[in-house]
Amino acid sequence: MPEDAQERLQANLQGQLRKLICQGLTCLDLSDAGTVSQLEPALSFMKLLIERFKVRGQLEEALSAKQWMLLQGILADGATTLVEANLESSLTEGSVRRKGGLRTTKGGVYTPNPKIQVNPLVRNTGTHVILTCSKCGLELKSSWVFEHRGKVATLVPTDGHSACRAKYVHTDAKISVKRDIATNLNMCIHGGLATQCVKCGGSQTC
């Protein structure tokens, strides 16, 4: 294979790898200190690559600059979470501070943070649904739902039952649940996720 063809192939593979990394990281909750701490070595290495390039020039001038800038934004969120980790540990048990404010499961009742509550597609029904930890069976009540295009899902904390590192589920398979990740609740006027909508210029589009 000619040398220039090998270079094109390598560049294409690197581009696909960066795309997969971006997609994978945006599916994770980088506002969770535990998640970020486990990813810290990989996140630090990617941040180092970006910092090395910025010594030589502007990131906007890099090949596949859009992917690198998206990565830079994701890494910045992860770094913020690590800085806030000490604050997390000082909160009342059962409460977790997110960027949008305080979300709590205190007393076995789930309350989303203010940022989630003001989402026009989120509402409090006033009627609790009983959820259980998929590992230990601990019960959690939630009266908050996300409704979009006629489909209703009960909101649950994205990190589930922290003590078990397991998710909350409903015993009735007909009742769907949805994790309280703000970006996954932000729908655009075209009916999809705002971050993935090409027409809206979503941050996860190429």
Score class of each variant (00 low, 15 high):
Leu138Ile: 11
Cys200His: 12
Cys164Met: 15
Met187Gly: 06
Gly160Tyr: 04
Ser90Asp: 03
Lys174Asp: 00
Ala33Thr: 04
Ala33Lys: 05
Ala163Gln: 15
Arg165Thr: 09
Ile181Pro: 01
Gln117Ser: 11
Lys167Met: 05
Leu49Tyr: 10
Gln16Glu: 12
Thr127Ser: 09
Lys115Ser: 13
Leu25Met: 13
Gln117Lys: 14
Leu87Gly: 08
Gly57Val: 01
Gly191Ser: 12
Leu9Arg: 10
Gly108Ala: 12
Leu102His: 08
Asn124Asp: 14
Ile189Met: 13
Val169Asp: 04
Gly108Leu: 13
Val55Pro: 04
Leu102Ala: 11
Met46Ala: 06
Arg179Thr: 07
Cys164Asp: 15
Lys199Ser: 08
Ala173Thr: 13
Phe146Ser: 13
Ser31Glu: 15
Cys136His: 09
Asp77Ser: 05
Thr111Asp: 04
Cys206Ala: 09
Ser64Glu: 15
Gly137Asp: 13
Asp180Met: 10
Tyr110Thr: 06
Ile21Ser: 04
Leu71Ile: 01
Leu87Tyr: 02
Thr183Ala: 11
Tyr110Cys: 07
Met187Thr: 14
Cys22Thr: 08
Ser37Ile: 14
His161Arg: 12
Thr80Ser: 10
Gln16Cys: 04
Ile175Ala: 02
Ala153Tyr: 02
Gln196Glu: 14
Leu25Pro: 09
Ala33His: 08
Phe146Asp: 12
Arg165Trp: 05
Arg97Phe: 03
Asp180Gln: 08
Cys136Arg: 08
Gly15Asp: 07
Ala182Gln: 07
Leu39Glu: 09
